[in-house]
Amino acid sequence: MGTRSRPLSPHLMIYRFEWTMLLSITHRITGVGLAVGGVLLFWWLMALAIGPAYFSIVQAILAHWIGRLMLLGWTWAMFYHLCNGIRHLCWDAGWGFEINTARNTGLLVLVSSILLTLISWMAVYAMRGA
């Protein structure tokens, strides 16, 4: 059994590339990235519970440029996953399945995730001056 060639369902490579495909896998990639962000939130809350000395070390690591770059990535991943998650909820409600609507909402998700990231980071720098 198993060696006979049976008909296979078409693989992903068969289909013509649509950039909505890229948005779809990005939802999953950002999800896995945000899971790592969930560990960071745990660490940050634990540091707060442990005490001032340890908390200031964690805050200093996050304030380093590498820490900031990673936080920037997490901010975008969060906004992307949130916006695209709302797009998914609309699909679940039966709305937005037409090809053009799906393309347009995909573009909307991409643009709004970038804008929300930029706006929130500019707001932090403007308010804190850090």
Binding site: P52, T75, G85, M127
Partner: peptide
Amino acid sequence: SVALAPLMLWLAYSLMSLATADHATA
């Protein structure tokens, strides 16, 4: 997810306002 969407916006806003906070403030 429906519950998480507003909670994450609240978390993002809160953590941004605590970006430079010390232990006492946080």
